[in-house]
Nucleic acid binder design. Structure first.
Length: 839
RNA sequence: GCGGACGUGGCGAAACCGGUAGACGCAGCAGACUUAAAAUCUGUUUCCAGACCCUGGAGUGCGGGUUCAAGUCCCGCCGUCCGCACCA
């Protein structure tokens, strides 16, 4: 009886061997086909959590498998190291953000290494390394010179707690995505990246991403938000100065004769001008601003309007005057900040018209004959023919749209246009711990790029965090400099870049990292796009859209010929855990529980414990599990195995003590099977079949990231091997089994491989090939049904003719009994599958 | 409100093109080994009924439909989760 597999010794041993042999170094010039496997790099917050373990284990299995399949695999790791938490730590603990970050990185790196992940650590970097952010500054300047970066005064989302600006994407329900504080509006000079220039191609590009989840593509599509329509001008009758006309945007120009009113946003310049001399208007606008922006409030918010008394002149009939309102539902930052209302065919306009007693006209009907039917309980926004619309009558919706646009353009009062929901990306942050924006503000020359030979613009080390706000702004000397153009007195930009810029190109730097430039074009292109990217769905919009944009921007300026950075995307589920509450409602961690005689009590008090829902692990609910502790107890392979078992990878994985115990037992079982293997002679055809089926199944399941199925395949094979008598086939099956588990449980696989006296490392071994001859069964089980219900099964040679199967079915005792003497009316035979007798 | 995903044993789940529902794991039950326990091994485990080594019936959220045959396709509900949110 062999000793148990000791993961603590084996893990450390093999991790050292892999490191010494540089086993996972990705070579640029090996000549093998390349495969780039990437997991989203972590923010160094302090310690690794189980979610990281799941994420990196999945990537690791794929990376190791591809290596065994003969690919040159790039599987790198680094750190998304800039960001607010480091500054918060600096404020709370009086530690420099850099020091805090570097020490977290050291901790997390050693935690990751204990998992035995096949990373090419030679390519590791942190985004806070001046070498990295210096190259980022160079790229920023390239975009600046290409006109893709600009500065403008704009109203921004200001987070009063973090004291910084947020991008639209970072405002959730009117609150800061990090701080949760109510966001305020402020006017500031900000740097923007022209992502809207790429709206069309970012949208079209989604169509080529067939290895992305539909869900993510749809989310991006909605976020980009393309609306095709027209913009046109309303003249105001009896105009006063400053309010002669206004423009509206519509996607339904065909309904132009259904208009009952026009409405301005409370923020519209005309509304603002009006408010200056009209107290009621001013009061109404103030009222609108008070309304909340949360989902619930918006849902129930009533449509409110203020009749300005002004009249808008219908562009196709100068005699037709529409009342002009200021309305709370019109948004200034979408379209033109003004709309015309067609109550018959827009639900929002319908509600507004109902409230204010405005006419509700039908201008679209299923047919011309139904032109007279009134609009019912709600607006109709379907298609049909245009009615009650003079020159448009009888046209289909699309034809009418085109006709109105054509007229407007030829008469000069409007034009066809496309409006996007996507806004330019504001990247200025009033923070210290980020990439300094490499711009110098000169009093006479304006904003000037820092010359590239002066990069990187390095963050000063001597900063204080005693007061909120930006330490760079307060630093006594850092911002003082000379203008690179005229030599005059100048000031450095003290804003830093949004950290999403850092993560928008790190995957390129992983592929190629020359010292003197951001990346080598040829080398980067040899690896990119990333073949499989794995991470959380929470990055479906922000990070993934920005990275797609950045890649396309680099292509446009000729630095890199890659359109889409991530060919395959996989969003894995979370790791969840039961929650527990004490009798008085406190959250309890699993360690605080006592489980003697089947009852769950709080160890300290003996009080009964409420078992709560299975939820995402979080510190506040005390349902987290520390990876280091379980690694100490079970070793890397059991932890990895558990991460891959049971739940499909895209779904949530409930962590359980029993589950990890089960994985531990299986790791030990594999060990015993390998080392207590009885030698034997002769062939075992059935086992050989099972073996080769498993080889094929495990391979295809790993290829499609169905790790839970691959795990099940391996269990089945292990069960078959244990039941099989000693034979040469069995010896071979055990060795092959080790190859199959090598990507998942690499330490055990190496240890057993050596114990069996096999040559070389299993990490360098080749993935076994399934013998096609053994994948074909020569006997199949045929189901015998009567009226579609299973009555019997029988075994027949594969490929038996229909007649033979029918005959066999009719010969069955059970069939005879079930038929009760009746003759089947009809017989359906599916070769190699079933016979169905219809009685 | 709009859009999307999902719903299968006590639990996590499989089930390829419509063709034997519940593979595999967890938990449970029974047994073997042991002074005993742990570990390990063997058997068993969808539900109901009975003549209980066997046989019959029901069964994939609910109600209909198509089909020789439906977890899978179609229609209508119910529920859960996710994303977006007054987008003109």
């Amino acid at each position: 009886m062999a000793a148990r597999f000791n993961p603590l010794e084996a893990d450390a041993h093999w991790q050292r061997v892999w490191e010494e042999r540089d086993s996972f170094h990705a070579r640029n010039d090996s000549g093998k086909p390349k495969s780039y496997i990437l997991e989203m790099f972590p923010y160094p917050s302090g310690r690794i959590h189980v979610g990281h373990v799941r994420n990196y284990t999945m990537g690791d299995v794929l990376a190791r498998y591809r290596r065994m399949k003969g690919f040159e695999v790039l599987h790198p790791m680094g750190w998304d190291a800039f960001g607010m938490p480091a500054e918060n730590a600096a404020m709370e603990k009086k530690v420099h953000p850099g020091e805090w970050t570097r020490s977290n990185i050291a901790t997390m790196r050693s935690q990751l290494k204990r998992l035995g992940l096949a990373f090419d650590w030679t390519r590791e970097f942190a985004t806070c390394d001046p070498e990295y952010y210096g190259h980022e500054q160079a790229l920023f300047l390239d975009l600046f010179e290409a006109g893709l970066v600009y500065r403008k005064q704009s109203e921004v989302n200001w987070d009063p707690v973090d004291m910084t600006v947020l991008a639209n994407e970072q405002v959730v329900d009117g609150k800061g995505w990090r701080s949760g504080a109510q966001v305020e509006r402020r006017k500031l000079n900000q740097w923007f990246l022209k992502i809207t220039d790429f709206a069309e191609e970012l949208l079209d590009g989604l169509g080529s991403l067939d290895q992305w989840p539909d869900k993510v593509r749809l989310m991006q599509e909605n976020w980009i938000g393309k609306s095709v329509g027209m913009r046109f001008r309303f003249e105001i009758g009896d105009p006063e100065p400053g309010m002669e006309s206004f423009e509206v945007f519509t996607t339904r120009p065909d309904t132009i004769f259904g208009a009952s009113f026009a409405a301005l946003s409370p923020d519209h310049p005309i509304a603002q001008t009006l408010a200056e001399k009209n107290e009621e208007a001013a009061a109404f606008i103030a009222e609108c601003k008070r309304g909340g922006t949360t989902a619930a409030e918006l849902d129930t918010a009533e449509k409110l309007g203020f009749d300005t008394g002004l009249k808008a002149v219908h562009p196709l009939d100068p005699e037709w005057k529409l009342p002009l309102y200021i309305a709370n539902f019109v948004l200034m930052d979408y379209g033109t900040g003004a709309v015309f209302g067609v109550p018959g065919h827009d639900q929002r306009d319908f509600e507004f018209a109902t409230k204010y007693g405005l006419p509700i006209r039908r201008v679209v009907a299923p047919s011309l004959e139904q032109a007279g039917e009134p609009i019912g309980e709600e607006a109709e926004n379907g298609g049909g023919v245009i009615v009650n619309s003079r020159l448009l009558d009888g046209m289909e919706v699309e034809a009418a749209k085109a006709e109105v646009i054509r007229r407007a353009e030829s008469e000069g009062w409007g034009e066809g246009t496309t409006v996007w929901r996507l806004r330019d990306w504001g990247v200025s942050r009033q923070r210290y711990w980020g990439t300094p924006i490499p711009i110098i503000h000169c009093q006479s020359c304006g904003p000037v790029a820092v010359p590239k030979d002066q990069l990187p613009v390095v963050l000063p080390e001597d900063v204080s965090f005693d007061v909120p706000g930006n330490p760079l702004e307060r630093h006594p000397t850092w911002k003082q400099t000379a203008c690179p153009r005229c030599g005059g007195e100048a000031r450095r930009e003290t804003d830093t870049l949004d950290t999403f810029v850092d993560s928008s190109w790190y995957f390129i730097r992983f592929a190629s990292q020359p010292a003197d430039r951001p990346f080598d074009r040829e080398v980067a292109q040899s690896w990119l796009p990333v073949d499989q990217y794995i991470g959380g769905v929470e990055h479906a919009i922000l990070h993934l859209l920005y990275a797609r944009f950045w890649t396309r921007a680099l292509k446009r300026i000729g630095l890199l010929d890659v359109e889409e950075p991530f060919k395959g995307l996989f969003t894995q589920g979370m790791v969840t855990h039961e929650t527990y509450r004490s009798a008085d409602g406190r959250w309890l961690s699993p360690e605080e529980l006592d489980r003697t005689d089947g009852k769950l009590t709080e160890a300290a008090t003996g009080e009964p414990v409420q078992v709560g829902r299975v939820e995402k692990m979080s510190k506040s609910k005390k349902n987290t599990v520390d990876p280091d502790a379980i690694l100490d107890q079970y070793g890397a392979d059991a932890v990895r195995w558990f991460m891959l078992s049971d739940s499909p990878p895209e779904r949530d994985l409930p962590w359980s003590e029993a589950g990890i115990e089960g994985s531990w037992r299986f790791v030990q079982r594999l060990w015993r099977m390998s080392v207590d293997q009885p030698g034997g002679e002769g062939e075992d055809k059935a086992l050989a079949r099972k073996l080769h089926h498993t080889i094929a199944a495990v391979g295809s399941n790993i290829d499609s990231l169905a790790f839970n199925k691959a795990v099940a395949n391996i269990y089945e094979l292990a069960n078959s091997i244990e039941k099989a008598p000693a034979s040469a086939t069995r010896v071979e099956a055990v060795q092959t089994l080790l190859l199959l588990v090598a990507p998942m449980a690499p330490h055990l696989a190496e240890e057993a491989w050596r114990k069996l006296g096999k040559e070389g490392m299993i990490a360098d071994a080749t993935w076994p090939e399934a013998d096609p001859a053994l994948l074909v069964e020569d006997e199949v089980t045929i189901a015998i049904q009567i009226n579609g219900k299973l009555r019997d099964t029988l075994t027949a040679p594969k490929g038996s003719p229909r007649e033979a199967l029918e005959e066999m079915a009719l010969a069955s005792d059970k069939v005879a009994r079930s038929l009760e003497g009746k003759t089947p009316r009809k017989v359906i035979v599916v070769p190699d599958r079933l016979v169905n007798l219809v009685a």
